[in-house]
């Protein structure tokens, strides 16, 4: 077949398209993490894979990045999850941050990514990681998960209360402010729901003491503390938290009710 001008034109067009798709992009671990942070998981995963074997790259960091992005590469398939598991398993030996995070994400995969999930294996893994006292806030968020799983496991109010109280000692393993705060707040909420107002209030107060920075969480927590304190007749705590709420979150659907509650508390009883 003669190589006619038409064919040459078509070939040039095809080459242009191919070349255009291979535009040079910044390829570095930082850029890969930036992409992951921006929810661009497919792009991030590709960069992590492209960095494999490159000189000067921390291979453990790279492998970890590839693994966690596999969890969200689209479409999410059992094969990608399996790839993530394989990579994470290679990282668990050692005591560095990547070993800890790899253990955490293996537990996450057991908890929520497998069909069917493996909650018992996940629980054991979270517990083991907590007992290591890593001081890593992300790893310590496993305590929140353990409390939530305990809440779900109970089938009646009494066993629910017991299951939740059994998780309280986990707080001793939490070295970070974030870890303690989130654990106390979640446990507190769960205990209030289970009807144990006194212990629930203690936990919420402990969580608040660590410092809640997210406004949506803070206002909810303050109202829950104030209400629990009011119902359990701890008037000073209730009044304090109603006041705090009104000062900081005056514009809220609950403000009117909170004002009324505060007035009731501040009105001397006959």
């Amino acid at each position: 077949m003669p190589f006619t001008p038409t064919l040459r034109l078509l070939a040039a067009f095809a080459f242009f398209v191919f070349a255009a798709s291979a535009i040079a992009k910044e390829v570095s671990l930082q850029s890969a993490w930036n992409l992951a942070e921006a929810n661009l998981f497919n792009d991030s995963n590709k960069v992590f894979r492209d960095l494999k074997g490159q000189p000067g790259i921390d291979e453990r960091e790279r492998a970890f990045g590839e693994a966690v992005t596999y969890l969200n590469v689209q479409p999410r398939t059992p094969q990608n999850i399996a790839r993530a598991q394989e990579l994470l398993k290679t990282l668990t030996s050692g005591e560095d941050m990547y070993a800890q995070l790899a253990g955490f994400y293996l537990a996450r995969i057991d908890e929520d990514y497998l069909t069917p999930p493996e909650p018992e294996r996940a629980k054991a893994a979270y517990l083991e990681l907590l007992q290591r006292r890593t001081g890593n806030p992300l790893v310590e968020s496993g305590a929140v998960r353990l409390a939530l799983m305990a809440e779900l496991s109970a089938s009646n109010p009494e066993s629910l209360r017991e299951a939740l109280l059994a998780t309280r000692p986990l707080a001793q393993n939490l070295l970070t402010r974030e870890g303690r705060r989130d654990f106390h707040l979640n446990l507190g909420r769960a205990l209030l729901k289970a009807g144990d107002l006194d212990t629930g209030l203690e936990e919420l107060l402990a969580g608040d003491a660590e410092g809640i920075t997210r406004p949506l969480s803070e206002r909810g927590a303050w109202v829950a503390i104030a209400e629990a304190a009011r119902v359990t007749d701890k008037k000073e705590i209730a009044a304090k938290y109603y006041r705090k709420f009104l000062e900081k979150y005056g514009r809220d659907t609950r403000s009117f009710t909170v004002e009324l509650r505060l007035k009731e508390l501040e009105t001397p009883q006959p």
Binding site: Q30, W33, N34, A36, E37, N39, F41, S44, E61, F64, G65, V68, T69, L71, N72, M97, L101, Y105, R108, N136, P137, L138
Partner: peptide
């Protein structure tokens, strides 16, 4: 969020 928080934690 798992991937996003991992990115933040590492950074």
């Amino acid at each position: 969020r798992d991937t996003v928080v991992a990115a933040l934690a590492v950074q």
